[in-house]
Design a protein around this nucleic acid. Sequence first.
DNA 1: TTGAAAGCGCTAACAG
DNA 2: CTGTTAGCGCTTTCAA
Lengths: 361, 361
Amino acid sequence: MKSPARRDVTIADVARRAGVSRAQTARALGSYGAVSEAVLSRVVAAADELGYRANALARSVSTGKSHSVGVVVGDIENPFFGLSVRGISDALRGAGYDVVLMNTGESHEVEVEAVRALDGKRVDGFVVAPALASAYPHLEALVEAGRPLVLYDRDVPGLAAPSVLVDVEDAVQELTLALLGAGHRRIGFVSTLRTRGEGWTDEQPISHTPVGRRINGVVRTLRDAGAQVDPSAIRLGARGAEDVRRHVRELVTGDAPVTALIASDALIATAALEELRSLGLTVPEDVSIAMFDDPPWAGLVSPPLTVVSQPVLDAGVAAARLLLEAMSGAATELVEPGRADRALRARLVMRESVGPARERD
Amino acid sequence: MKSPARRDVTIADVARRAGVSRAQTARALGSYGAVSEAVLSRVVAAADELGYRANALARSVSTGKSHSVGVVVGDIENPFFGLSVRGISDALRGAGYDVVLMNTGESHEVEVEAVRALDGKRVDGFVVAPALASAYPHLEALVEAGRPLVLYDRDVPGLAAPSVLVDVEDAVQELTLALLGAGHRRIGFVSTLRTRGEGWTDEQPISHTPVGRRINGVVRTLRDAGAQVDPSAIRLGARGAEDVRRHVRELVTGDAPVTALIASDALIATAALEELRSLGLTVPEDVSIAMFDDPPWAGLVSPPLTVVSQPVLDAGVAAARLLLEAMSGAATELVEPGRADRALRARLVMRESVGPARERD
DNA sequence: TTGAAAGCGCTAACAG
DNA sequence: CTGTTAGCGCTTTCAA
C-alpha cells in the first residue's frame, strides 16, 4: 500500500501548520538564530505531527558544508584498511561527519574518478591512500583548490598535504638484525605494492610508499652489516595470490635461493605460507618468514609468525584528527610531509617463524 | 598562497563565458536535453577554462536523487563485513552509486542515529545489517516511507523488506552429523551476537538472526539423532576476546565439559584457540573445533580449521543487486522475507580440527 | 524576536 | 535547438 508518491514534508509545510514564518521555522528546526520558546514548541510540535525530516542536502547547498568526508582506500577487504576505516570513521562520526567510502581496488583510474565524484558531492575533506602512480594531478588539484586532504599510509612527494605514516624504521632494523643474527644473508621481499615504476632500484631510496620505507630499512641494515643486496630478491607488484606464489616459488627454488622471506602484508604472507607448504618446505627449518601487520591469527598459525606489528587503529584515528584540524581551518601547512609520525611506531614481535638460516645446495 | 576564498564556479559563470543561456549550459554540462554541437563545445571549453566542477548536491536537491546509498554494518573491522562491503560497494559503484558507510559497533542507538542521518542526506537506498534489538521502529519507518531497504545477514521479522541471508542449513547439518559421527555428544556454541533476549531457548527457533539459524540447525540435527541438547552450552552475546575466552574456559572445564566447539565467526575462533592453548588443551585431541567463515588463514593454522565457508563477496553483491532493483522502482514486494537465498549456500570444508571425541573425566 | 525576500547551484516546464 | 521562468528546500541578509 504505497501512497501516491507524496512529496517530502518541507519547512514551508511545517511553517504553515505552526502558523509561523518559514524563516522562524527554519531557525527553530535548525536550532540557529533566535527563537522564542513559544514558537519553538509550536514548530517542533507541528514538525513531528507532519513527520518532518530535515533535508541535509538542501542545507548543504546553502551552507556549503556537507558534513561528509571522502575516504578512498585500495581494498577494504584487506584487514589493514578495515581496521583503518574503523578508526577513521569512528573518530569522524564523533565530530559529526559521515564517511563516503570509495574502494579503488588499487586502480589509479578508479581513484581519480572517485576523487572527482567525492569532490562533486562536496565532501568537506578527504582521506586518501593513493594507489601508487607516477602522477598525482587529481590530488594536486585538490590541495590547490584548498580542499582539506590527508594522505594515508602513503605519501606523495612534493604534495603539500599532511600524511599519516607508521614509523617502521626501528622495527625493520631490528627484524633485519635478527635475520642477520640467525645467519640469513639472502633475504627475499614480496609486496603487492610497487614503489614507482617496475622494480626496485638501489639508487634512490623511496620513502613515500610503505613498501619503500620497509625495503629501505632492510637494505640499509644489510649494507651496514656488510651483507650484499640482490635486487632480484625484491619482488614488487605481485597481483593476486597466484602471482605471489609464483614469486615465492622463484625466490626459494632459484639458483641462489633465499633463506628468509619478508611479506609486506598479511595477504602476501598467507599466500607465501601456502606455497611453501605445497613445495614441501617447512618454516622455519627450510625458510624463515616474517610479515607486516599482526592480525589476531598471526600467533595461531604453525609456526606462530614473527611480525612487525603496526598500530593500525591509531593510525586511522590520527588521520581523522588531522583532517578535522584541516577542516576547522587550522593552518596545516606546518606539517613536515613525508615524515612518519613518531607517535605511530611499529614494533617487532618475535615468534617462531624465524630460525637459523639453512645451508642449501 | 590561498586565494581570497573564491566562490565555486557555477553554471551561470560558464554560461556567461560561453555566451549561452544557463539552461543550455546546464544541459550541455549535465548531458541531458538537446544541445547543438557548437554550443556543446563552446560550453565545455568555457567550463574547463574556468575549472567548473558540477555541484552534485545542488543537482540532488533538484532531482531528488543523491546517487548515494547508505550501508550500515556492525563492525567494518570484521573481515566478514569488510568483504561484504567490498562486494556491495563495487557492485553499486558500477551502477553509479556511492556508499556512505556507517559503522555502528553493533550499538542499536548508533544504528538508529545512523539511519536518521542517512535519511537526512537523502540516500537513495539502504543496506543495513541491524544490530539485534527488540524493536525496529527506525527500519519500519523506512519501509513505511517507501525508502528502498535491503536487510543484510540479519532479518527483521515482520518487516516487508528483502533480505540477503546465506543458507547454512545443509552445511550446518553436515557439520553436526560429522561431529556426531566422531562421537561428540556435548557440543558448545559461542557467538558474539544474540538472538533476542539473553540466552537461547529451546522453544522458539529464531531464524532471523545468523546465530539463530546456525543454532537451529545444530539443535535439530542433534535431536534427530537422539542426542540431547544442553542450553547452557550455547553461549551468546560474548563481548570481546576476554569474554569469549571465559565462555570457552567454562565450556571445556565444567562438570560436563563439551568435547567440541563451534565458533560463530573467525574472531570467536581465534580467541577460542588462544584459550585452549593456554589451557594446555590440544585440538582436536582434547577438543574439536569448527568455525563459520573461511578466511585465507583458516587452512594455515595448526591444525587447519574445519569451517563452514560462506560466499561473503557474493552475498554483498546480491545485496547491491536487490537494492538496485528496489531503487529502480521494481516491486520488491514479491520477496519472501526471512528466507535464505538459495543461491547463497554455505558449504562445509572439512580440515583437521575435528577429530574423535575424547572420553573425559 | 520576527518576517519578507533574496540567495545557494542546479533542473524542469514551457514557449518559441 | 534555445532561452525564460519557475521551482527544489534550506539559509541568510535586512528591516521591522
